[in-house]
C-alpha cells in the first residue's frame, strides 16, 4: 500500500449508522454528493460506479472491503479520459466513535497522478461539509452540482 495522498477528517455529532447512510444511500447522496448516486451491490468484489444526475458515469471501480457502518475501501478511477489514464486509486472511508456523542469520519485517498488528486481534493472537503451540516442541522451549505 502506498502512502496516502490526502487525508480528510471531520467530526460529526451523529451516529455511525446515519453517517454511513449519508455516504451511501441515494436519497442522501443526491444532496451531499452533488446529485450523484452509487451503483453497487455493497459487497466485497462488487462493481462500483458513481452516477451523475444526467446519467454519466463519473467514477468507477470495485468494493475492496466493506464493514458497515465502520469501513469502506474502494478501488477508484475517474472516468474522464484524461483522468482515466492515470489508473487506479484507492479510497478508504472510516467511521469511528469520538468524544461528545460524535463520530470521526476519515477519508483517505491514495492516488497515482496529479490530476485525480486535484479533482478529489476539490470535492472531498465539500462532500464532508455537506454531510456534517445535513446531519447536524438538517440543512445543506452547498447545493451546486458537478459540472
Amino acid at each position: 500500500m502506498s502512502k496516502p495522498t490526502f487525508v480528510y477528517v471531520t467530526y460529526i455529532r451523529s451516529t455511525a449508522d446515519k453517517v454511513w447512510a449519508a455516504l451511501t444511500e441515494p436519497e442522501f447522496t443526491a444532496k451531499t454528493w452533488f446529485g450523484a448516486r452509487h451503483e453497487t451491490e455493497w459487497k466485497p468484489g462488487a462493481a462500483w460506479r458513481l452516477i451523475l444526475q444526467d446519467g454519466r458515469v463519473a467514477d468507477a471501480g470495485e468494493i475492496v472491503e466493506i464493514d458497515k457502518p465502520r469501513r469502506l475501501v474502494l478501488k477508484w478511477r475517474n472516468e474522464k479520459p484524461e483522468l482515466k489514464e492515470e489508473g487506479w486509486s484507492r479510497c478508504t472511508i472510516e467511521i469511528e466513535s469520538a468524544a461528545d456523542n460524535a463520530v470521526k469520519l476519515t477519508v483517505t485517498h491514495e492516488a497515482n497522478g496529479p490530476k485525480l488528486i486535484e479533482a478529489v481534493s476539490g470535492s472531498w472537503p465539500r462532500i464532508l461539509s455537506n454531510i456534517k451540516s445535513l446531519l447536524e442541522t438538517g440543512e445543506l451549505v452547498l447545493e451546486n452540482k458537478i459540472q
Partner: peptide, 17 residues
C-alpha cells in the same frame, strides 16, 4: 496531513453562495 475541512467550513459560513 494538512486537513483543509475546518478551513473549508469557515469559508462556507461566511462566504455566500
Amino acid at each position: 496531513y494538512l486537513n483543509p475541512v475546518p478551513i473549508h467550513e469557515i469559508g462556507e459560513r461566511w462566504i455566500g453562495k
